[in-house]
Nucleic acid binder design. Structure first.
Lengths: 225, 225
DNA sequence: ACCGATATTAAGTTATCATTAAGTCTGTGT
DNA sequence: ACACAGACTTAATGATAACTTAATATCGGT
């Protein structure tokens, strides 16, 4: 059930690193494009539209951060995954990287094992968000328009509400732990209180008017019509 | 409470770092043991058998790398997760660290947020094999859905009830001592009276309506259809 | 029949969730 | 720049299910 190969663009000025990462990614079935500086990275990114861009922070011509910002400014790269490679142990830089819109960063020297697992993790996360319309009995959940149809009623949910419902509905019956929900809907590093989830659950139940979310006390929530 | 708290051993010679990491891990429900040098780390690791060992690379007595190698040499620590903390930008050290068998490394200065998300990620990866659906004759115990099916009836158990039944059903026929049950379901450090187990057993028997738990007087309980 | 151990029941305690309201943040239109 | 609206988060309170305990009954082996 292999879909088409994921395209990965790697930009780094050290040929050795390019080689190592290219070798490992190829072995995993990725299609790899390489660039040796910021300008080349930008140009190749625009031309090949990769699924993932790996950027060394310190590069000639343009730094990884600059490239990232320029890419993110274009609609075509809004959803593209971006990973920074950084030798800088400075936390400030790392955080700034993430704020610029990177999805992860890996510190140098790079361990191929760690790098691969990060890449795989990112794509895994992406797959889950893949927009497809869910239909469970008389309920339709449409991620394109943030709309839920129950029978003939069209109900509009807010973003977080929708993402939460969508997550649960992806696997009806399966219990999602509060931590899983936080990770998937809010992100690994965002810290919000537990009660926040409850409030969103409540709004969903209220708006839908149908009892489709079951509480499993001490564990989490599950979708169940 | 979790099925069983994950034990984490942190070894670092800087008391501040120990405190910060301990605080954050405890908040996430981990059980934390600390050590201030390599020898102490080794000794406590052997005694407490943690699920995860966090090792500062630069420590008195023995370095983190040495501790890691010594641990990995023992069968008991083949599967234990190991993370290195390193302030060293030295490439050689880090690479050697990973070759020694560390699962990840985090560079200092440590951001608690980043550190936590790495730890959680490691355990998440490890957990993939844990939740499996048990089927014994016409009974199905599904931890993912938190449901027990007997024939066509779906029975909802409370958290402790479910965990208790799941534990027994993992090894049908095997007798679990009351102490084992307490450790697995309630955790090593929680103190509850013996009667508590009886009450939960009773609720399970009552809810299932099937006689699947046998009392072994003076010893414990076992699952048996 | 007696004793130690478990079963049962009911009542007490706690943890967790639901609900509400108020506060913060963000973006939009004037 | 301003204010307004909607989305999101937090905090406080109340409700309830889950859990624990304790008191009493029952069972099984000697």
């Amino acid at each position: 059930m292999e879909t088409k190969a994921r395209k990965v663009l790697i930009a780094d000025d050290e040929p050795d690193i390019l080689e190592i990462l290219k070798y490992n990614l190829s072995n995993e079935g990725y299609e790899v494009i390489t660039a040796k500086d910021g300008d080349e990275a930008l140009e190749k990114a625009r031309r090949t539209l990769p699924d993932l861009v790996v950027l060394d922070v310190m590069m000639p011509k343009k730094t990884g951060v600059e490239v990232c910002q320029l890419l993110r400014a274009q609609p075509a790269f809004k959803e593209t995954l971006i990973i920074f490679l950084t030798a800088v142990n400075d936390e400030g830089t790392q955080i700034k990287g993430l704020e610029t819109g990177a999805d992860d960063y890996v510190s140098k020297p790079v361990s191929p094992k760690v790098f691969l697992s990060r890449v795989n993790a990112l794509f895994r996360r992406l797959n889950k968000t893949e927009a497809r319309i869910l239909t469970i009995e008389n309920m339709t959940i449409d991620p394109e328009r943030f709309i839920v149809k129950v029978g003939e009623n069209e109900i509009v949910l807010a973003k977080k509400e929708f993402e939460l419902l969508y997550l649960l509905a992806l696997k009806p019956g399966r219990v999602f732990l509060r931590n899983e929900i936080l990770n998937q809907v809010w992100g690994n590093d965002v810290i919000v209180g537990d009660r926040t989830i409850d409030v969103h659950i409540r709004k969903i139940r209220q708006k839908l008017g149908v009892d489709c979310i079951t509480t499993v006390k001490g564990v989490g929530y599950k979708f169940e019509l």
